[in-house]
């Protein structure tokens, strides 16, 4: 029997119940949100469960939603169950003032650099990571460049104030 999204959802809600929310299936990919204390437990469960076997971490990254007060940073996991040929995605939201999320390095060696990258660009602190330092940016950098408060172009320039071209001050969510 092929593994269906409904079955995965049922399996997860059986085990974790209320901690999971926002189940969606955009473009056929099962997506849900997990409270941040549980991210490692969910990963472990998905990894170990004999029917699910989500043992391949496809991607790990973060997104910054500055308007989402108290849960500004979303860490996004893409998992793949190679045995069942099914993918899923889940998100963990965290407060930007205390961006601590458990590391997945104990389960996936691949999470090491992906988490370092996420830390580098968003400042998510992965608790328990063996070597959490910047990876692509210079070590001396003191900000997290992919956060939305850092606009791409130099905002002090006055020769390029044309909103039509996406420059100007009209950036995302009022920054």
């Amino acid at each position: 029997m092929a593994l269906t999204n409904d079955f995965i959802k049922l399996r997860l809600t059986e085990k974790f119940g209320e901690a999971l929310s926002a189940f969606e299936e955009p473009y056929g990919l099962l997506t849900f949100t997990v409270s941040k204390e549980l991210n490692l437990k969910i990963l472990q469960f998905l990894f170990d469960d004999t029917e699910l076997q989500f043992q391949f971490l496809t991607d790990l990254t973060a997104v910054h939603y500055p308007d989402n007060k108290g849960a500004e940073l979303a860490v996004v996991y893409h998992l793949n169950s190679l045995k069942n040929n099914v993918k899923l995605r889940f998100k963990v939201y965290t407060d930007i003032k205390d961006p601590k999320v458990y590391t997945a390095t104990s389960l996936y060696a691949s999470a090491n650099w992906m988490e370092r990258e996420t830390y580098d660009f968003f400042g998510v602190e992965f608790v328990g990571h063996p070597n959490l330092k910047r990876i692509l940016n210079v070590d001396e950098m003191d900000y997290f460049p992919l956060r939305k408060e850092y606009p791409l172009e130099d905002q002090t320039r006055i020769d390029k104030d044309d909103d039509m071209f996406g420059r100007g001050g009209a950036t995302v969510s009022g920054y």
């Binding site: 496809t58 650099w113 996406g166 995302v172």
Partner: peptide, 29 residues
């Protein structure tokens, strides 16, 4: 596996775009 994770908020550009770069991931081994 070269992956593109694209989030659109309906604006003219992507709200967030992430590349899953296979090289970056396996080089750590």
């Amino acid at each position: 596996e070269l992956g593109f994770y694209l989030i659109s908020d309906g604006g003219r550009a992507a709200y967030r775009l992430h590349f899953r770069r296979p090289c970056f991931i396996y080089y750590q081994a």
